[in-house]
Nucleic acid binder design. Sequence first.
DNA 1: CACAATCTTATTGCGCGCAATTTGCTTAAG
DNA 2: CTTAAGCAAATTGCGCGCAATAAGATTGTG
Lengths: 152, 152
Amino acid sequence: MFDNGAIKTEAMLCFNLYAASLAMTRFYKPFLEPLGLTYPQYLVLLSLNQEDKQGVSKLSNELQLDTGTLSPLLKRMETTKLVKRLRQADDERRVLVELTELGREIAAKAACIPQCIAQSLGPNFEEIEPSRLLLAKLRKVLAKTVPPVLAK
Amino acid sequence: MFDNGAIKTEAMLCFNLYAASLAMTRFYKPFLEPLGLTYPQYLVLLSLNQEDKQGVSKLSNELQLDTGTLSPLLKRMETTKLVKRLRQADDERRVLVELTELGREIAAKAACIPQCIAQSLGPNFEEIEPSRLLLAKLRKVLAKTVPPVLAK
DNA sequence: CACAATCTTATTGCGCGCAATTTGCTTAAG
DNA sequence: CTTAAGCAAATTGCGCGCAATAAGATTGTG
């Protein structure tokens, strides 16, 4: 109707990114719930299935989540028997996170979810998937660009 | 080195979306903090600046956040004097959210942030911005696709 | 009018994200 | 050996997201 000159959230990259990410997490939920997983737990499981016995800081670096997020998350995954946490013998500061047998089973079941998602979205998925490369680039650029308010 | 056949998070659309969204929110933080805003509060402010006196459910629909998120968020924005909440006279169920004078001032200051971000990212931004349309599409497709596990 | 069904918002509870601080361990320097 | 500096993980505190539930207002039906 009228346009008061204000920015439309719809027209902003950041809002569409934010809303799309939340929508994706919601979409995964019915797939993950039967497996007793939350979305970030699912990512941890995948990362460990790809490379087991990572330290907390390795996972932190891999998934770009800090220890304030990961520590309690891993504790919960330990109580649900998905992982074990063990102190590294030669450096007791480090904690290695290892998949249990159950963890590997759940990871195996979870492995097909991305294809399920893709299939659910049908031809739309083919159209959208190429944004993955742009998002990977965006994520890296954002991570390494110095916040300019602080620069100098 | 070795590839055990497991999925790489790096290769997944959903992970890149998730990580990029978090990275974007982090990137916004130093711009928003001086204004006393969090990222979702910033979105609410923009939405109200675009159209004032929206009901809670209108905002919910606009930003795709539910009332469990918005109710306490709006309450916090009321205590920081950014908005006022008033019951609609002819339907007391409804709550209209209105920008205060301060709210409009902060919204005005916040309006230039996207350009600041774009400028900070330099030529990378031009490369990445086109993903906005794909993300908008993704968000809509995800919202209206019936979760297939539940379908039938 | 009575009263059930519906609608709108608020509340509760839990799991993130993340800044700031703390704890325990390791290494470096005197 | 001692002590300071640095590192890895955990804890604390707060603000989301969101499911589930509740509370209050309105509408529809008899």
